[in-house]
């Protein structure tokens, strides 16, 4: 099933053209990577997919809803079906880790306090945080822990879709590899579809099923990693050349 369809998306910010006709398709169960040189608009595209930013023309269809004409009610229901992990976690700094993860559950479900508590504990353990860390505030923990906590929060509502913005950037190599295996594990366990922006080659090779490479406002390649080196492009050559 096609979860996300991007068709002819064009984005103009001020007088700068960021995207000029992007097309891509993300299927259910895929771990899909958006790659490209810095400043090519990967994160912008990700933000457009999660309704944080508007695109100028074209269409994005997400779980069967077209984002450019979506109603507030549909948008709200989409927001319950996805989780987003921001680059620096973006935890609510006035709440503890536990409260951060519990927030969507408290707001959107009728679950009992005890049940919510158990779900939160499970999600926190799932991402590899210790139960005793749950009562710390975001300012009291390291960047890597913040990312993990952000992931736990993104997973709180058991989403179908997970968006990750540079999930391994700023992590030490060991944590980064742990994060990769965590993502693979989550996909297999929960049947998630994952879209991520990444620069981390190791992570790209370990986790991604499919990639789209954005360069010079266009998608220059969409497909599996095995065939990517057949494409003639400066970015692809310098980025993937080393791995051959």
């Amino acid at each position: 099933m096609e979860f996300i369809k991007v068709r002819d998306v064009r984005t103009v910010l001020g007088d700068k053209i960021v995207h000029d006709g992007l097309n891509l398709t993300i299927n259910e169960g895929e771990i899909y990577g958006l790659l490209g040189p810095s400043g090519c608009g990967k994160t912008t595209l990700l933000r457009e997919m999660v309704l944080l930013q508007e695109f100028t023309s074209g269409s994005i269809e997400l779980l069967g809803k077209r984002l450019e004409t979506i109603s507030e009610r549909d948008a709200q229901s989409l927001r319950h079906q996805w989780g987003v992990l921001f680059q620096f976690g973006a935890l609510f700094s006035s709440l503890t880790l536990k409260e951060n993860v519990a927030l969507p559950l408290i707001e959107y479900t009728e679950l009992s306090e005890k049940m919510i508590d158990e779900i939160v504990r499970f999600k926190i353990n799932l991402v590899g945080l210790k139960t005793e860390d749950a009562n710390l505030y975001p300012s009291e923990i390291s960047g890597g822990m913040r990312k993990k906590a952000g992931l736990a929060r993104a997973l709180a509502m058991d989403p179908k879709l997970l968006f990750l913005d540079e999930p391994t950037s700023g992590l030490d190599p060991i944590s980064a590899r742990e994060f990769d295996s965590l993502i693979l594990k989550l996909r297999d366990m929960l049947g998630l579809t994952i879209v991520m922006v990444s620069h981390d080659l190791q992570s790209i090779y370990d986790t991604l099923d499919k990639v789209a490479i954005i360069d010079n406002k266009k998608i220059i390649y969409e497909g599996t990693l095995q065939e990517v080196t057949n494409v003639k492009n400066d970015f692809i050559e310098s980025f993937f050349g080393k791995m051959k």
């Binding site: 927001r79 987003v84 921001f86 620096f88 973006a90 609510f92 969507p104």
Partner: peptide
Amino acid sequence: ITQELDAMKTMGF
């Protein structure tokens, strides 16, 4: 700046 507002929006708050 910390993207907390963005996080709120994506969570539907």
